[in-house]
């Protein structure tokens, strides 16, 4: 079948979306981790000049959209991951449907709040 099997949603429930999104955000966050470590290499310049020049680029209005998307990935992966861990431990399996709805709402609320913080940091 191939990897396209992870992206079949016709006739599927929200659970399949959650699974695929968890996987995609996981990959995005892995790439971000590598980028983050690379980025922090600029701290090795002890004058601080390299680091400050990079911060000037990334903490900016133009970069805000990436921050917001990254936060979406992080928050969704964390909140949905917590739901999965609960079920994997055998907790609240009977409530899996309401739990999915509640956790999606939580993810959206946390995402909007964190995005607002990022927005105000860039001088909003």
């Amino acid at each position: 079948m191939g990897v396209s099997g992870w992206f079949r949603f016709k006739g599927r429930s929200l659970f399949s979306w959650a699974f695929t999104f968890q996987r995609l955000t996981g990959v995005v966050l892995l790439i971000y981790l590598l980028a983050h470590l690379t980025y922090l290499s600029t701290l090795l310049d002890t004058t601080g000049a390299t680091y400050e020049s990079m911060i000037a680029i990334t903490v900016s209005r133009q970069f805000l959209i990436f921050d917001i998307l990254l936060i979406l990935c992080g928050v969704f992966h964390g909140v949905n991951g917590f739901r999965i861990i609960l079920h994997e431990f055998g907790i609240a399996y009977g409530y899996r449907k309401p739990l999915l709805a509640i956790f999606i709402v939580i993810a959206v609320v946390v995402w909007l709040y964190a995005s607002y913080i990022m927005y105000s940091l860039t001088g909003g």
Partner: peptide, 18 residues
């Protein structure tokens, strides 16, 4: 996230990080 983005606006300055 709290430390780097919500404590102060200066939290990401080089001197602060170090």
């Amino acid at each position: 996230f709290y430390v780097t983005h919500m404590t102060s606006h200066e939290a990401l300055k080089y001197a602060e990080v170090v």
